[in-house]
Design a protein around this nucleic acid. Structure first.
Length: 579
RNA sequence: CGGGGAGUGGCGCAGUCCGGUUAGCGCGCCUGCUUUGGGAGCAGGAGGCCGAGAGUUCAAAUCUCUCCUCCCCGACCA
């Protein structure tokens, strides 16, 4: 492609809207343009990168025997009502009525459509196993799009769905996809972590996320450098050191207007870790009260709570309900002396038997010292707390650290959640009807692009890994009016394309400095610089964007054997992440 | 959804508090001449219902009201 006729609007100044590194560089390098919040036009250079990524994804999915198909983004709301997810995903679904008044939506994901397909075509164990995938657009009316392509309302996802007859076969598909994902991210020049994750509204028994460490990420992952434990902060485990057991009697102390843990601990002159936090929720749909107890200095992980409750829904209790139950204002609630006997109590294991804590007295302006589990109250034990940086690893006792990360892939063992609710059944060898066991596996295509930029750039611009670079080579004739330079540039350009090397020719009438700056900004891995100096000696100058290394290569060999004279084309280190 | 910030040629901004010439500057764009190894110089140009609507006023980018949009933090989120 000739740059003079190419839509690559590079910017010298950074648009004010861009905050994250990848967003700034994508705008500056002319890869994308925002149309509205969370929706971007992909300009030619950006689109080429996305297509490269898709191709890598396609090859790896095909290689594990996954079949590519294409499902509609336009979907009737009915199928979402079958699984009950019309309600669960209500907030993020783009919904509207067609001209007949039927409710439709733009698919935020495709489990329902896939299950409908399976229900229609899979009837026998002989039809299984199967894995189907697509590379398709998703629509999610995100409350807050952010970070350029990190979170958008319209994006491309590779989503795959495995259909199995047994848990073992699901496990097998899960591992195959896991391996394919590892290949995809490695080939795309990304350094990634696989972390244990929370399944959320997808449901199912287990899931893992593929994470690229980056300050622009929205997720927090917990890392143990010693034993390699990795998990999303939402579900990360950590070890708790308990104080010694002590048998002291309960004693009410006056704590006027001290409601928060911080206020109470400060007022009584004790560390927050010697206090106990009590939170009351109402379980739905029965309105059964739920008391959650956790050490005062720790926080409850919503994801862990959701798992402890096995997905049962809940809501925060109203202040009147709390008052009725405890006889005190919120801020003075504790586990001892509550006025409801149907209350369910779940306790984080930061509150062990025999260790006294300071808790609410269920009496306005009073707390109780010496409240002790096992003696004064008890309940179900769970790990509910959010792990903190510096906490001990639950596997090896080393200190945990955390890091921000971009989620680029997520794999789930769904089980029979969708096949049960939508009736996707098959007959087994014994003529018994069974639900199909499903898995689903997603990759965010744009996030790979954004992630690759986050990880591979310097102060001058993007440094594309060779594997996903929009072009491998850019030719920079520095003096357009020097006919010899111009002719050589054209000649090399033609030869490179003949040899199958994707090449850009900067044929713009611009100053050398301008071309250098743009070439660095674009991040094309190999620059071929044609100036008078080099030409005099019969050489072109080859600059490797990633290393800055410059080498003279004879024009003769470039023309006769382009691939052979550019060994960098096949240098694997140019497809690896920096450092 | 809570908090904060911002809408002025394609991009970055000034002007707004304190109303008053043809609304400025830089980048980019067009024409000409010069220039050519790290975002060239000079000269001459084109391009703006100042986010939208209503109001106040002799007069509104500027004051008032309503609305819309975008960004950031948080909550939320395959």
């Amino acid at each position: 492609m000739r740059l003079s006729r190419y839509l690559v609007p590079t910017l010298k100044e950074i648009p004010a809207e861009a905050e994250s590194l990848s967003h700034r560089l994508m705008l500056r390098a002319g890869l994308i343009r925002q149309l509205t919040a969370g929706a971007y036009s992909y300009l030619p250079l950006g689109w080429r990168v996305l297509r490269k990524i898709e191709q890598i994804v396609r090859e790896e999915m095909d290689s594990i025997g996954s079949q590519e198909l294409y499902l509609p983004a336009l979907q009737p709301l009915d199928i979402w009502n079958e699984t009950g997810r019309a309600d669960v995903m209500d907030e993020i679904m783009f919904k509207f009525q067609d001209h007949k008044g039927r409710w439709m939506c733009l698919g935020p994901t495709h489990e329902e459509v896939i299950t409908e397909l399976a229900r229609a075509y899979v009837h026998s164990y002989k039809d299984l196993p199967q894995q189907w995938y697509q590379i398709q657009i998703k629509f999610r009316d995100e409350v807050r799009p952010r970070g350029g392509l990190i979170r958008t309302r319209q994006f491309t996802m590779k989503d795959a769905y495995s259909l199995s007859t047994s848990q073992e076969d699901l496990d097998d598909w899960y591992m195959k996809n896991r391996q394919a994902y590892s290949n995809i991210f490695t080939r795309s020049g990304l350094r990634y972590f696989i972390v244990g994750a929370h399944s959320g509204p997808m449901g199912g028994s287990g899931s893992e996320e593929f994470m690229i460490p980056s300050d622009s990420g929205e997720d927090m992952i917990i890392i143990c450098d010693d034993c390699g434990y990795l998990a999303n902060l939402e579900i990360a485990m950590s070890k708790i050191n308990h104080r010694g057991k002590l048998d002291i009697p309960m004693e009410d102390v006056e704590t006027p207007e001290k409601r928060t843990i911080e206020e109470v601990a400060g007022f009584l002159g004790v560390p927050e870790s010697e206090t106990m936090k009590s939170v009351i929720y109402m379980l739905l749909p029965d309105e059964q009260p739920l008391l959650i107890l956790i050490r005062g200095d720790l926080d409850v992980s919503e994801a862990k709570l959701e798992m402890a409750l096995k997905g049962q829904e809940y809501r925060p209790a109203h202040p009147e309900e709390i008052k009725e139950m405890s006889g005190a204002e919120p801020g003075f609630i504790g586990p001892v002396g509550l006025k409801r006997d149907d209350i369910r109590v779940i306790i984080d294991d930061s509150i062990p038997d025999g260790v006294p804590f300071i808790g609410g007295a269920n009496k306005d302006n009073f707390h109780t010292k010496g409240v002790t589990r096992g003696r004064d109250f008890d309940g179900e034990s769970f790990d509910l707390r959010v792990a903190r940086e510096g906490d001990q690893c639950s596997h090896c006792d080393s200190a945990l650290r955390h890091e921000k990360a971009i989620e680029v892939g997520h794999i789930f063992k769904l089980g029979t959640k969708y096949s049960d609710s939508m009736g996707a059944m098959y007959l087994d060898e014994n003529n018994i009807e069974k639900p199909i066991i499903m898995g689903c596996y997603g990759i965010g295509i744009e996030r790979i692009m954004a992630g690759a930029i986050e990880v591979n750039s310097d102060e001058n611009g993007i440094i594309w890994p060779m594997s996903i670079a929009p072009y491998q080579v850019i030719i920079l004739p520095l003096d357009k009016r020097n006919e010899e330079i111009w002719e050589k540039a054209e000649e090399i350009y033609g030869k490179l394309w003949d040899a199958g090397i994707e090449t850009l020719l900067d044929d713009r009438d611009a100053s050398p400095g301008f071309k250098f700056k743009d070439a660095d900004l674009f991040g094309i891995p190999i620059q071929i610089i044609l100036g008078k100096r080099a030409l005099k000696s019969g050489n072109a100058e080859v600059k490797v964007r990633k290393t800055g290394e410059r080498t003279d290569v004879s024009l003769q060999s470039l023309l006769s054997d382009p691939v052979g004279s550019l060994p960098w084309l096949n240098d694997p280190t140019l497809s690896e992440p920096k450092e």
